[in-house]
């Protein structure tokens, strides 16, 4: 991973992106976008999280094992979400 002065510039760039994303999600929340409010908010949040993971947490420059670990964690989270919703989303009585 990059342990040099240049990395700092990248950190500020990420910080700027995160700030823009925060403002954007704040602004978008007050607009009536129909069903799109939540997806847009989540899309912005995911984008911000990806920036933090890749740059602040150095995953972009780390080995394959680290990348696999991150993906595995998210995959298992999706199992939890998806299979739980298989039940709750298909209940005819709620």
């Amino acid at each position: 991973m990059s342990a040099h002065a240049g990395a700092i510039k990248g950190y500020f760039a990420v910080f700027a992106v995160l700030m823009v994303g925060t403002m954007l999600t704040y602004y978008a929340a007050f607009q009536d976008l129909g069903i799109w409010n939540t997806p847009i908010a989540l899309f912005i949040a995911v984008t911000k999280a990806v920036c933090v993971v890749l740059i602040f947490m150095h995953v972009k420059d780390s080995n394959r094992l680290t990348k696999v670990t991150v993906v595995a964690g998210l995959f298992w989270l999706m199992i939890l979400f998806f299979l739980t919703m298989v039940d709750f989303a298909s209940r005819p009585w709620s």
Partner: peptide, 11 residues
């Protein structure tokens, strides 16, 4: 932040 604070703000 978006999930707790920002839902349905537009309403």
């Amino acid at each position: 932040f978006p999930l707790l604070y920002l839902i349905n703000r537009h309403i």
